[in-house]
Design a protein around this nucleic acid. Structure first.
Length: 256
DNA sequence: ATGGCTACTCCTAGTAGA
């Protein structure tokens, strides 16, 4: 079983890269973020041609999440249960085989001290509430996506330059830690403890080429999933070449 | 990293992302 997460930064702009990547990696489930398109304009045909069924939860211009699956998806839910009708579309949940998957695009926060930054911290709290109310630590559960926070110094190319800034602020790290403390493991780190391993690089200034990145995309898993993990991979190749997303996919391989 | 790019839209300027 292969589960992947990828912030595609517009599915319409990224469609050739995403379909090429699906053909190459053949994940059982791809969790996408920042699809940036309303549901009836999602490029569904390209996914069907590659053997994937889609569940989308998008909006115009911003945000948007989607699940592309080769197998049957059940237990679908879109957004938080208490979302307002016009809430940002940042979360979609489904089940593939016995695995519950929550695909998230955590708010960026825009600016420290802003209402949106407070909303980012609150969003982490709502995610924790969802776990408390809906799941057990013993469930096979994966929460994956773009969390928009680098957890530790080793997740940032220059921690001293980034310390206290958006994406690397202690308040964000505490909010993430509270989520993890529910009973989740950042499974990439279980397998790759080293430095210099990132999932996002700024488009500007040749950041990718210079190795200036952050690790803000990951898969958080419960113990039953961690025990089945064979490998976790960041596909840096997907950040290269023509019209890449600024994020790389992260891939989790599980024993069936 | 001062910024430097990319993608979006009531589209050629402004907003947002991270």
């Amino acid at each position: 079983m292969r589960i992947a997460t990828w912030n595609v930064n517009s599915i319409r702009a990224r469609l050739p890269r995403v379909t090429e990547w699906l053909a190459s990696w053949s994940p059982d489930l791809l969790c996408m973020q920042e699809t940036k398109v309303v549901d009836d304009q999602f490029p569904r045909d390209a996914f069907a041609e590659h053997g994937y069924q889609l569940e989308v939860f998008g909006q115009k211009t911003y945000n948007g999440v989607a699940l592309a699956s080769r197998g049957s998806l059940t237990d679908l839910a879109r957004g938080f249960p208490d979302d307002a009708p016009d809430a940002d579309r940042r979360l979609i949940t489904g089940r593939i085989a016995d695995l519950h998957v929550i695909n998230v695009y955590v708010p960026n926060g825009t600016e420290l001290g802003s209402p949106r930054f407070a909303g980012k911290l609150a969003w982490f709290g709502r995610l924790r509430d969802l776990l408390d109310r809906t799941f057990s630590r013993d469930d096979p559960l994966i929460i994956c996506g773009d969390f928009n926070v680098a957890p530790e110094d080793r997740d940032v190319h220059d921690p001293e330059a980034w310390r206290g800034k958006l994406l690397f602020h202690p308040d964000e790290q505490r909010a993430l830690q509270h989520l993890l403390s529910w009973g989740l493991t950042d499974v990439f780190r279980e397998h790759h403890p080293g430095e210099g391993l990132f999932s996002w690089w700024d488009y500007r200034g040749g950041a990718f080429h210079r190795g200036w990145g952050l690790r803000i995309d990951y898969l958080l898993v419960t113990a039953p999933v961690a025990a089945r993990t064979r490998a976790v991979t960041i596909d840096r190749e997907a950040r290269k070449g023509n019209k890449p997303s600024d994020h790389a996919p992260v891939i989790l391989d599980l024993e069936d």
